[in-house]
Every structure is written in structure tokens, then in C-alpha cells.
């Protein structure tokens, strides 16, 4: 388990777009049940993959500029960024195995 850092409009560029490693971004909102269900799954994976994949979360109801830029209109929405580019995205709660599979696909592309 590892904490998933909160990123906002001001820090998104540095923490996500300029990151060396691939970044999984969890757009979430308060009082969103599937977001609550997803949080411990991401914390677990963040712990396992520390050093290889960075995990961050963005409150889509507050970081509205970032949410709008990436067209986020539902939560949770997950993005994987690699070298500042969107490598993958998916809307809604995902089981642990599905997130693993998607991250493996992105990190194995080299």
C-alpha cells in the first residue's frame, strides 16, 4: 500500500506531463461510490509498482481546468500518461486485474 498523491490544476504539468515514468491518473470526486471502491485498489498497486509507475489522483470537481482539458465528465476516469501523452484511458470502476493488464500493456511498449 502507498498513498496516492493529490494533484491539482497548478501541479498537473509537473507531476504528470513531465514525469519520467508512466503516470496513472485517477480523476475522482467526493461522494462517488465507485471512486471510493477504487481508492484501495490504486493504493495497493501504487505500493507494488513504486519506482515503475507513478499514481496520482485529481479531484475533478475542483481541478476543473484539468478535467475540462481532458474531457472528463464522469468519475472515476483513469488515464495513463507516458511522456506527457495519453497512452490509455477508461471510464468507471475497474477491477485490480484489469488495471494491471492495462499498465502492463503501456509499460511493455518500451
Amino acid at each position: 500500500m502507498a498513498a496516492v498523491a493529490e494533484v491539482n490544476d497548478a501541479t498537473f504539468g509537473q507531476e504528470v506531463l513531465e514525469a519520467e515514468e508512466p503516470v496513472l491518473v485517477d480523476f475522482w470526486a467526493p461522494a462517488c461510490p465507485p471512486c471510493v471502491a477504487l481508492a484501495p485498489v490504486l493504493e495497493k498497486l501504487a505500493g507494488e509498482m513504486a519506482g515503475n509507475v507513478r499514481f496520482v489522483k485529481v479531484n475533478a470537481a475542483e481541478a476543473m481546468a484539468t478535467a475540462a482539458k481532458y474531457g472528463v465528465q464522469a468519475v472515476p476516469t483513469l488515464f495513463v500518461f507516458k511522456g506527457g501523452q495519453i497512452a490509455d484511458s477508461v471510464i468507471g470502476f475497474q477491477p485490480e486485474d484489469e488495471i494491471r493488464r492495462r499498465l502492463a500493456a503501456v509499460t511493455e511498449e518500451g
Binding site: A29, P30, A31, C32, P33, P34, C35, A60, A61, M64, A67, V72, Q73, A74, V75
Partner: peptide, 10 residues
């Protein structure tokens, strides 16, 4: 799911 996505439509 209004409770999930509603806050994004302020």
C-alpha cells in the same frame, strides 16, 4: 449516477 458525476456539472 448523479451522486458520482453531478458535481462535475456545476
Amino acid at each position: 449516477c448523479a451522486t458520482c458525476d453531478g458535481p462535475l456539472f456545476s
